[in-house]
Amino acid sequence: MFQSIIDAHIHLDAYKIGERQRLLKEMSENNIETMITVSQNLPSAVINLSMARNEPKVKAAFGFHPEQPLPKETEIEALKLLMNHYQEDMVAVGEIGLPYYLRKDNPEIQVEPYIEILEYFLQAADAIHKPVVLHAIYEDAPIVCSLLEKHNIKKAHFHWFKGDTKTVSRMIQNGYYISITPDVLYEEEIQQLVGVYPLSQMMVETDGPWPFEGVFKNKLTHPKMIHQSIKKIAEIKGEKLEDVYKKLYVNTRDFYDM
């Protein structure tokens, strides 16, 4: 029997309504205790807030995903007001970070305005004593590490992380957490990261509805995929499966203060 799991990063609001209902209905039979649904923007945060208030197994994070055009100042202010007013209904500030892929597609995009927004949210998270969920990969990751250090943010979760060994060492030293996606079953880069990153600073996620390849090709991204991720993590780490289940579960519960 599978042990209990927590999906540490999913965009539940981005699923079609019928798919969302299916995931919620199938949580118990797949030993999915909690899904932490992160927000793309203000409308996304409003939907996630509603789900979190109506479904005890859903926990919400509010933020502005960086892989999109800059928001208006009014939207940022509204998000901050939402976070301040509904602190008890949120577990983190996220998803926030820097627009790596957006800048790859549009090199003329300047990163400085996104850094300014990120700092705004880091300060907001610090003010309400919430952890942050980060989209920060490759050369953006050292920039974000510096910002976390600047604002003395200790509880940082880098989801689906990819980066150089120097940055990985820095993140480990600073106590930052990462979460592993189902592509750990077939992506060597992710397998290598699992090999070097401490299990004590690791969680698991789907980032659904983002689709995966390999055994998951053409399948709806579902938190139950995490069971296969954990099996692979245990194999890479050379640890007992039940011990890895327990550690990842406790890590997530503790990090998000649930």
Rank of each mutant, 00 (worst) to 15 (best):
A234T: 10
G94D: 11
T181N: 15
G208N: 09
K130E: 03
P99E: 12
N31Y: 04
Y256D: 00
K237C: 09
P66M: 04
D243W: 00
G97L: 09
A60L: 01
L23H: 03
T37A: 12
D140T: 06
E235M: 14
K217A: 05
N174P: 00
S229G: 08
D140K: 04
G163T: 01
E33V: 07
A136Y: 03
V132K: 06
H85S: 05
K247E: 11
G63R: 03
G175L: 06
K59G: 02
N251R: 05
M27F: 01
S44L: 10
Q123A: 09
K224R: 12
P69H: 03
V46W: 10
Y138N: 08
K154Y: 05
S169R: 13
R20F: 02
G63L: 01
K166T: 04
Q21L: 13
I6T: 03
L79S: 08
G175T: 09
S146Q: 11
Y86Q: 07
D207V: 03
I226P: 01
D13I: 04
P223H: 11
G163L: 01
V250F: 05
Y176K: 07
Q201G: 12
T37S: 14
P43N: 12
I17A: 12
L185S: 08
F158H: 10
F161L: 07
G63V: 02
P223A: 04
Y138R: 05
T165S: 15
P43G: 13
H159F: 02
S44G: 12
D105C: 07
E108Q: 12
F64A: 08
Y249R: 02
N174D: 03
M35I: 02
N152I: 07
L82Y: 10
I153N: 06
E108N: 13
N54R: 08
L118C: 03
A60W: 00
E29C: 05
Y86R: 07
L49A: 00
P223R: 11
R103Q: 12
T206D: 00
P211L: 04
V144Y: 08
K154M: 03
V194D: 09
A52K: 00
S39K: 12
V93M: 07
H65N: 11
Y245N: 04
L79K: 10
G238V: 07
Y245T: 05
H85Y: 15
I109M: 05
M90D: 14
T37V: 12
K231A: 05
I128H: 04
E213P: 07
V111I: 12
M171E: 08
V58S: 01
E55T: 03
F255V: 11
L42I: 09
F255R: 14
I230G: 01
L134G: 06
P142K: 02
A156V: 01
D164N: 15
D105H: 08
I17S: 14
V215Y: 02
Y256H: 01
P198K: 02
P69M: 03
